[in-house]
Amino acid sequence: MAPMRTDNRKKNRLTAMVLFTVAGGMVGLAFAAVPLYKLFCQVTGFGGTPKIASQPPAAAPSDRTITVRFDANANPALPWRFLPEKTQVTVRAGEPALAFYRATNLSDAPLTGTATFNVTPFKAGEYFSKIDCFCFTEQHLAAGEEVAMGVRFFVDPGIFTDPNTQDVTTITLSYTFFPATGGDGKEGEKPQQVKAPAPAPVAGRPVKG
């Protein structure tokens, strides 16, 4: 029977310290969730996050084909007209393909936009790889300027062997352009980090419109 109070006080403090540490750790974990979630999406293709590849696959392309549809959106805060040049292509899995989008700055001021992207169905994200994309970097458009922007991609033939993706015959690649800097996307403001780790941006502005 230990006498209470004095003895307990030390023990209580120790317990409370441990518990406070746990609570603090959980706050830390909540913040750690942000980079972990991003990493998780990139690694697993979760939420339709496409993969990023540095080069086309070495193996010979598959004979089976898959349809890739292109979707384009511009946030109302960015006065751009943004459309795919072709709405869909049919590609052989494993074979790199090049597709173009066309963006027009409708305003009379230079604007910078950055595009977010994903594919649907989400489960196809794991098998959709981009080699080059205008979405890796910010895009600057002078007033009234029109550009064609390219994306080079391939569909991993693994999509035909994964039981989860047996039903996928069409993949939709979707982009949404947002103003690159917090507010209005005006030029000259500090460029913002884009979502994906960027390999060398080649396809940024391959064709002048």
């Binding site: 518990l19 746990v22 603090g24 959980m26 706050v27 974990l29 909540a30 913040f31 969730a33 942000v34």
Partner: peptide, 13 residues
């Protein structure tokens, strides 16, 4: 103890 701090983190974000 374990759930509330996670809410606090999210709310702060």
């Amino acid at each position: 103890l374990m759930a509330m701090p996670v809410l606090a983190g999210g709310l702060t974000m």
